[in-house]
């Protein structure tokens, strides 16, 4: 089966800074990959390259076997992105937001699909409320509905727990777990080691623009992950990773 993601020799240089250095990453369908790393290590840059928001300085990215650089619009149809930003419009209702994105993705039988995803994230009673009246947790659940409205085979999660209280985080984990399936790959960037490890099949740690650790989640305990993460990250703090990578 074609892997969901194949990134080969991906590097990214912005000005004098080498943000990513020769990254090779393959994610199979049905797998949940968690990417960890200190601030400035290059995780978000990697995600932006995998989603086509940034072009790599070198290397290539295949999504479902298709080159992101060659058919970007078609490839973008294959994935959904859940970020700590919701990508939603506050003045529109939940239903209007989903209608808008559903039409952009040419979702067939859209009205029924909107009802389905609203029920999936537990917002069916709030379909007609403007997003600006929603709590942070509700916004994040609606952002998930937006990201899956077109039934993507690949999901990118960029620090989805940011700004959520413990109860909302738990709800989010439950919704994210329900999205797992044999045909859907999920890639999550997070700073939440416990949630990241609990959901993952595989954990990758990015440090100074390189993959410093790549392990099956089943082989790691939380303590072991913490220990190996500290060993891999060394003394890097905020922004240190990218600066180190320029040397």
């Amino acid at each position: 089966m074609t892997p969901a993601i194949v990134a080969t020799h991906v590097s990214k240089r912005i000005g004098p800074r080498l943000i990513l250095r020769d990254i090779d990453l393959t994610v199979e369908r049905g797998r949940f990959l968690t990417i960890l790393g200190p601030n400035g290590a290059g995780k978000t840059t990697l995600l932006r390259i995998l989603t086509g928001l940034l072009k790599p300085s070198s290397g290539r990215v295949l999504i479902d076997g298709r080159d992101l650089a060659e058919v970007p619009a078609e490839v973008r149809r294959q994935f959904g992105v859940i970020s700590h930003h919701s990508y939603l419009y506050d003045a529109l209702t939940a239903r209007e937001n989903l209608y808008f994105y559903g039409r952009l993705y040419d979702v067939p039988d859209l009205a029924a699909r909107i009802d389905e995803v609203l029920a999936e994230v537990g917002l069916e009673l709030f379909f007609n409320e403007p997003v600006r009246t929603f709590s942070r947790g509700m916004v994040q659940r609606l952002a998930i509905a937006r990201a899956i409205i077109h039934r993507p085979s690949l999901l990118f999660l960029d620090e989805p727990y940011t700004g959520l209280d413990p109860q909302a985080s738990e709800t989010l984990s439950s919704v994210l777990n329900s999205l797992r399936g044999p045909d859907r790959a999920i890639v999550m960037i997070t700073h939440q080691f416990d949630q990241g490890l609990a959901m993952a099949d595989r954990v990758v740690v990015v440090v100074r623009g390189q993959i410093a650790l790549d392990e099956a989640a089943a082989d790691l305990t939380l303590d072991e992950l913490n220990r190996r993460y500290r060993a891999a990250a060394g003394g890097t703090g905020d922004g240190a990773g990218a600066e180190e990578a320029t040397r």
Binding site: A73, R76, L88
Partner: peptide
């Protein structure tokens, strides 16, 4: 606001 422009850029539209 809410980084909605990225949401548009990530969708399959020219």
């Amino acid at each position: 606001l809410n980084d909605a422009l990225h949401g548009l850029m990530l969708s399959p539209v020219d």
